[in-house]
Nucleic acid binder design. Structure first.
Lengths: 163, 163
DNA sequence: AAATAAATGTCAACATAGTTGACGTATATT
DNA sequence: AATATACGTCAACTATGTTGACATTTATTT
């Protein structure tokens, strides 16, 4: 397949993104069934894992859902001790979110599943090609959100390096 | 940003795909509100547009949902005359799906929105880099579905060329 | 010809995850 | 002291998914 950058190619792009996403999330979905959780729980767990101390309002901004919608899954995750909250030190209205050991362990399991898919899929791509793929995904993000996404990615990488 | 092919890079990959998909579908979602339709209608319209004469069972296979779930939106789209059905000539149990003029016009509108995003996002990528991005998405698809996705893409391109 | 299978449609009940709107509480800021 | 912010919560509703049961039409098999 050629994947040309013409109008037909744009149709192909739409479809490839649909199928890639469909299959990328389906395996974690299945794994979460055993916990009585769904995709919404996955997202919350994932972003808290990657951004320890994340505030509720920041999570809302990432997920682009209403606080009522988030609260339903967050409440469950806190009650079942996958996530805990800490009151802000400076501003005590803020609730900072962290994973418990139990939470970390679930996220690890889910990430492993997706890491496997990524590593298998990206096996035959050079580092440069891989970089292109990531940059391509990044470019699709809304203009106004790019800076923040990048900031979080950088912070997360730094956190990792500091360990 | 470097986007390395290491474990941290895999986390980044997960996030980039999430944000890219989130924003990629959000504009069509908004446009569909005016029609009282949602994302499920979008998908059905899109795949019928790209595969004229598609059968219901094939659509089920693409969307990976149950026939009851599909039927709800398909029924609406047929009643409101965005899609029509034709009985199979060889096998008259089959229902082949096609877009009406009204349907084509809506799909065009939705595709325009996404074409704009793609073309803006991919502007700075070389044809080779663009090819990498598409190939990368393709690689993420389930092994068992790759052949069929490719077949449909090829057919659609051929249909276009024959016009 | 009769039985079986396949493709589709439909009814009902339910789950998940999203929405809006209203309101409460604690804490900061003005 | 008044107002704004961050968060939580109740209720009702919508969209989209699920399972299970069953009907209809048409093909295929026996």
């Amino acid at each position: 397949m050629k994947f040309d950058k013409d109008e037909q190619g744009y149709y192909e792009f739409i479809e490839l993104l649909f199928f890639a996403y469909r299959d990328f999330v389906s395996e974690p979905d299945d794994a979460l069934l055993a916990y009585g959780f769904g995709r919404a729980h996955h997202r919350t767990l994932y972003f808290v894992s990657r951004n320890p101390g994340l505030r509720v309002s920041e999570l809302l901004d990432i997920l682009k859902v209403t606080k009522q919608s988030l609260n339903r899954v967050l409440k469950q995750l806190i009650e079942e001790k996958f996530i805990y909250q800490e009151q802000g030190e400076g501003d005590r209205r803020r609730r900072h979110l962290y994973l418990t050991i139990k939470g970390e362990s679930l996220v690890d399991k889910l990430c492993d599943i997706q890491f496997n898919r990524i590593s298998k899929s990206m096996m035959d791509f050079s580092p440069e090609a891989y970089h292109n793929i990531c940059s391509g995904l990044f470019s699709l993000i809304d203009k106004d959100d790019k800076a923040e996404v990048l900031l979080r990615l950088t912070r997360a990488r730094k956190r990792q390096e500091d360990e």
